[in-house]
Every structure is written in structure tokens, then in C-alpha cells.
């Protein structure tokens, strides 16, 4: 059964009886799926950070790209598995909590703002701070909207 409306928290929503119960019976497979997904996401993020380093006063494009693209993908994923289809048990834990959660990062974003300020690049820091926020939220919205249109769920449901 799909919940009545999409969740607020895509990692886990205890208001959804299925998610509330998902830790009982299959704890190892659940946490294992999250761990493996998290490893994959983090390794890709690390690979991009190594491939595209930024100078101390430069714009952190690698993390920016990771966070904005991860936000686009969570929008697509959540519409597919909570609005368009009913997904098998481990899909959300593996792809949403694990892969996309491990791929995107708030801590590196915060520390890169701090490092830019410490390097004397306050303007870059502010641009990165606000630019990531605006682009990431817009990406979620684009991912959600386009996927609803593509799957035809847009007309059938309300999202309150």
C-alpha cells in the first residue's frame, strides 16, 4: 500500500506504518542495503572531489555539482517510489537513504564555506552558500515535477 500522501522525510517516516515496522524483521538486510548504497554514493562523491579539486579561494564545483544533481535525483526517485509505483522493500533504503544520502553531503558544504571564508574569499563563500541552496531546492522541484508529468500522477493526486 502507498501512503496517502508522499512523506516529508524521504530517509524514514515513522508516520508510515510500513516504515515504522521495517526495522523489525530484516534489520541486517535493511541496514546492509543502506550501508552498501552509502558506500557507492560516497565513493562517487570522493572520486569527483579528487578529479575536480578547487583552489582555496575557488568555487567548490565538485560538491556543488554533487549536491545539486543528488537533489534532482531524489526528486525523481521519491515520486517514482511513493507516488507512481509501489517499490520493493529495499529500494528506498538502498537508493534514497544509501546512494543519494551518501553521495550528497551537508558537512562538506558547510566546511567549504568555512574554508573559503578562512582563505579570505568571503564573496565566493556567500555565492557558494546561497547558490547551492537555491540550485539544490530548484533541482528537487524540477525532478519532482518532471517525474510527475512523465508518469501521469500529476492530475490524480493532491500533495498536501
Amino acid at each position: 500500500m502507498r501512503p496517502e500522501r508522499p512523506p516529508i522525510d524521504p530517509d524514514v517516516d515513522l508516520g508510515d506504518p510500513r516504515q515504522r515496522a521495517e526495522l523489525r524483521g530484516g534489520t541486517v538486510s535493511l541496514l546492509g542495503a543502506i550501508a552498501v548504497g552509502g558506500m557507492l554514493g560516497a565513493v562517487v562523491r570522493h572520486g569527483l572531489a579528487v578529479a575536480f579539486p578547487h583552489p582555496p579561494r575557488g568555487f567548490p564545483w565538485a560538491t556543488f555539482t554533487v549536491n545539486v544533481s543528488g537533489c534532482l535525483l531524489i526528486g525523481v526517485l521519491m515520486v517514482l517510489i511513493t507516488e507512481a509505483w509501489t517499490a520493493p522493500r529495499l529500494v528506498r533504503p538502498f537508493l534514497g537513504v544509501g546512494v543519494l544520502g551518501g553521495y550528497t553531503t551537508f558537512s562538506t558544504y558547510a566546511i567549504e564555506v568555512q574554508q573559503a571564508v578562512a582563505a579570505g574569499a568571503a564573496r565566493t563563500a556567500l555565492l557558494y552558500l546561497a547558490g547551492t541552496l537555491v540550485a539544490a531546492l530548484a533541482s528537487v522541484r524540477v525532478g519532482v515535477t518532471l517525474t510527475r508529468l512523465a508518469t501521469g500522477v500529476a492530475r490524480q493526486r493532491s500533495y498536501g
Binding site: 516529508i8 551518501g102 558537512s107
Partner: peptide, 26 residues
């Protein structure tokens, strides 16, 4: 602990989706 643990402990995708969903839900 930094790139691996903190990187995966924290998330922008979950944060972004929640913010958009809160907005959408009024």
C-alpha cells in the same frame, strides 16, 4: 571519519526533498 562517515551521515538530498515537500504541503 570526515569524507566517509560525516559525508554519508549528512545529506543534502534528504534536506532538499524535505524542504520542497514542506513547502508543497502548505
Amino acid at each position: 571519519l570526515g569524507v566517509g562517515l560525516c559525508g554519508a551521515l549528512t545529506t543534502y538530498s534528504t534536506f532538499g526533498y524535505e524542504t520542497v515537500r514542506l513547502f508543497e504541503a502548505g
